[in-house]
């Protein structure tokens, strides 16, 4: 499985890399939404993980921009958020997110969630 993960925190990126590569998932990383779109141009991930609060282009903007691309209309996108507030989930949903993971994430659950949306 190939996953693109977008988060502006190096720590979170490191942890995602550790978790996902440990689960045998090929991971591509980007530092913000804008960067994420650039990285996305060169790869065809099976799923995308994105943070919400990011410079340049936030998670909502990123997800909308991804969904606008025909080839990613149905690519599963998981939102990583520190908030579990329902309105945040609703916003992520409205932007086109497939699911969400509450930070700090439990590595097993993240992998399980990826399997749930991307097989």
């Amino acid at each position: 499985m190939k996953v693109l993960a977008v988060d502006d925190s190096r720590t979170i990126r490191d942890m995602l890399r550790l978790t996902l590569s440990g689960a045998g998932i090929e991971i591509y990383l980007a530092e913000d939404g804008q960067h994420g779109l650039e990285v996305l141009e060169g790869i065809a991930p099976d799923a995308i993980i994105s943070d919400i609060n990011m410079p340049r282009l936030d998670g909502f903007g990123f997800i909308s921009a991804v969904r606008e691309q025909d080839r990613h209309r149905a690519t599963p996108i998981l939102v990583l958020t520190t908030e579990s507030a329902p309105e945040l989930k609703a916003r992520a949903r409205a932007a086109g997110a497939t699911g969400w993971i509450v930070k700090p994430f439990d590595p097993d659950k993240l992998v399980r969630a990826l399997n749930m949306v991307a097989g």
Binding site: R73, A74, T75, P76, I77, R93, G96, A97, T98, G99, R112, N115, M116, V117, A118, G119
Partner: peptide, 12 residues
């Protein structure tokens, strides 16, 4: 539309 796939859900 949100990118979910029943196939994976059933698989899970």
């Amino acid at each position: 539309a949100a990118g979910n796939d029943p196939y994976h859900l059933l698989g899970a």
